[in-house]
Amino acid sequence: MCNTCGCNLTAGNRHLLFTPPKTEAVTAVSVLGSLLQHNNEQAGRNRAHFDAHGVLVINLMSSPGAGKTALLEATIQRLKANINIAVIEGDLETENDADRIRAQGVPAYQITTGTACHLDAHLIAGVLPQLDLSAIDLLFIENVGNLVCPASFDLGHHRNVTLLSVTEGDDKPAKYPVMFRAADLMLITKTDLLPHLDDFSVAKAAQCQRALASQVPVLPLSSRTGDGLDAWLDWLAQEVVAHKLRVQRQQTIKPRMQEDGLKWHQQTPKIRFRPVARG
């Protein structure tokens, strides 16, 4: 029996400690728990699973129609001879994107989320049994097209790549700071359309990204013409090699994910238990 864990409290003496519930007796418990706790725990398990096979996992995020699938098609065409690639596709409905990827000769797994606007760690865990990770070096997760929700969910991946197409407006990073701040790499896509647009400045888009205190590379490219693709493919190849070395050293890396701010409040005890109103 002690005064620390509460084992000295019995049905016979508990009334001495707490006032009866009918009054304003309130017990406050400080918890400091992340509201994304369940997701983050599953994400950690997913990442350990990927790392055990040395697979680099990249989460592609953008608004719908920014060219994620087209980028993957162009990327697979250029890289599949040297790097074993697979893709997990997230969409509300249809297998269309997975079919486009399979047509490139690499495995693709479609997650249809129904009405959910983002992928989460549990959805990814659901398709893991179908993936032969030992045959993969690089796994892309094409998230649901949405500049809001996907940024908050760790999937167990290693890098976030955020796409901004030139038809969307160059101030998107200022409008969606949570998403763009999470980027480990920012791609400006569909640059072949720039001659037809007088209101998109690549420099302005990069400037909005820098205002988020983000120093990540900003790479303009066109999946259609291939312009600028080399820098993106070089980045990918370097990341794949760097990750293989990392897991050999028993290390991993987390994406620049929207954390829950918990780290700044750790000095407070994790659980504090105090009866506030005593009779």
Binding site: P21, A25, T27, V29, V31, L35, L36, H265
Partner: peptide, 12 residues
């Protein structure tokens, strides 16, 4: 931040 900071309970 997205933190569950405190819970107040009654009828303990």
């Amino acid at each position: 931040e997205l933190i569950l900071a405190r819970v107040e309970l009654a009828g303990v």
